[in-house]
């Protein structure tokens, strides 16, 4: 390993270091002389970050789902079955389509076809938003049928799980819209492509997560 010297102690005047010294030169905390472009800042760090983030989400959902499993096993008599509003099927379809559109866009961009990328990505963005609106409609319909958060454990878990998923979708949409914003002004540099790939990956993850939740609600709960 190379010799690392604390920047503060290099000050020649021997003055006591400031309480919170300035970050070393180069900004962002990187000493410019040791800046290795292939590490840090990079694409692969972003990918690792998003995959680790997905693990965290999986843990949250596993906790919620295992709570539901425990609750259902507790007592069979008061687990009122939930009739899923049919709009959920439309939402599922839209979400899958948005995933497809986003992936087509991603592939087009890799071949440098920016104009087409913009069409497809816009389509994906709009369908993602549509999914979210559809979810709100679904919650409304459920409530109209008397399945509210309170009083029925099954619908309570349904709400919590779908809310948690929707919160993730909102987060992902922020990323997707950010790409959209840059793309429409043709400002997608190499760093922007990382955004494209990372947000697409997370979007697919939310898609798969949703299919899993649907499968649970349809076949098990």
């Amino acid at each position: 390993m190379a010799t690392l010297t604390h920047p503060d102690s290099l000050k020649s005047d021997g003055a006591p270091p400031p309480f919170f010294p300035e970050p070393p030169t180069g900004g962002g905390g990187d000493d410019s002389d040791r800046n290795r472009p292939e590490r840090g800042n990079s694409r692969s760090a972003a990918f690792i970050g998003i995959v680790v983030m997905m693990c965290a989400s999986v843990m949250t959902f596993s906790a919620l789902l295992s709570a539901m499993v425990v609750r259902r096993g507790l007592n069979g008599t008061d687990w009122h079955h939930l009739t899923l509003p049919s709009i959920l099927w439309w939402n599922t379809g839209i979400l899958i389509l948005s995933s497809v559109a986003i992936d087509v866009a991603r592939r087009l961009l890799r071949r440098g076809r920016r104009q087409e990328f913009n069409y497809w990505w816009t389509a994906g963005t709009l369908m993602g938003t549509w999914f979210l609106i559809g979810q709100i409609v679904a919650w409304k319909q459920l409530a109209e049928h008397g399945f509210t958060l309170i009083g029925n454990q099954h619908s309570a878990f349904f709400y919590v799980l779908t809310w948690a998923h929707a919160a993730h979708v909102v987060g992902a949409l922020v990323g997707v819209f950010y790409v959209e914003y840059r793309a429409l002004r043709f400002r997608l540099g190499p760093a922007g492509r990382t955004w494209v790939d990372v947000s697409a990956l997370f979007w697919h993850f939310l898609d798969v997560l949703w299919l899993f939740l649907m499968a649970i609600f349809v076949f098990w709960a």
């Binding site: 965290a56 949250t60 906790a63 919620l64 709570a67 958060l149 309170i150 919590v160 948690a164």
Partner: peptide
């Protein structure tokens, strides 16, 4: 582990604030 505590915290806050009974 922290995401699990977060999930538990959300459930218990719903119990406290929204009247669920998890």
């Amino acid at each position: 582990s922290f995401p699990v505590l977060l999930a538990a915290g959300i459930l218990i806050l719903l119990d406290r604030l929204a009247g669920t009974g998890f």
